[in-house]
Amino acid sequence: MSGILNPEIIALLLLDVVFLFFGFIAFILSLKIALFWDSNATTKRQYTLVKQSYLGAVIIKYILALKIPLILFFVFILDELSTILNGAMCAAGVINATPYGTYLLVLKIFNIYLFLYWLYLHKVDEANELQPYTRIKFALFSVLFFPFLAEIVLEFALFSSLDVNTLVDCCGTIYSFASQSYLSVVMRSFGSSYLVGLFYFLFLAIIMSYVLKKENLFALLNLVFIVVSLATLIMFFGTYIYEMPTHHCPFCFLQKDYNYVGYFLYTFLFLGTFHGLAVAFVPATKKMQQSYYKTSLLFLSLYVLSVTFYVVRYVLVNGVWL
């Protein structure tokens, strides 16, 4: 429990409590709206629901507006904690210090995708006089509330089970090929050159599907791109950022030593793929869809260019591949 008295952790938990409180209110409102919304009715209940839908939306926007900076803060804190935890070199060690770490991080990212999707749906809904998606968007939130709740519970579990006295693995062990983690098994069975090839192929395929205006394909490819990008980032591109063939870590490049480049890479990847998915999943006007396409392509290109840059620079400077 000694970890829990760290000020940064208390701050995170405090905000969690606020989220829980407001999230719960939004959940109840969402349920009511999802069940009883009837835009044609002139009943008192519908009238109250209309008012409550404003509150629901404000709360969800509030939570989302904080979640985005907070996830950066969260990773930053994990990095900080790594100096306290014996053996950890970066956030990877802290994440793996307890069984919840990895799930929590994945869940956090997943939730941001979902919340942002909610916001986009909300925008589309609000811009239409018929408010065709009000019911759907609040039904969505009543479902979305559960992974959100799970995130908060996991966060409490993570921080209360951190034990500063036990030795944790550093990222070198966690992501090395020798260990038996899922990731390393997948990597060994694939071989990195195939994956890197797949990575660039996917990127080209995404551009192609834009040209052909195949929105479902575009979104699907983006989904696959998330997975492949992360895998190649850990096993291939990361090593060029670190300039060390054995260093496979998705967290160390968040640190100052690497100019915090990780934050940029992840932001590019996130914005690119999110808009890629939005193309198919947000029922937007053609004009808005066009802007999703463009935003997606812009950030994906930025991402691809950035990771490629590290490889090219290394090869140009050293004349060899890692």
Binding site: S2, I4, L5, N6, P7, I9, I10, A11, I84
Partner: peptide
């Protein structure tokens, strides 16, 4: 951190 944290509580 502990003392700071205690204050924070």
């Amino acid at each position: 951190s502990y003392r700071g944290g205690f204050f924070l509580l």
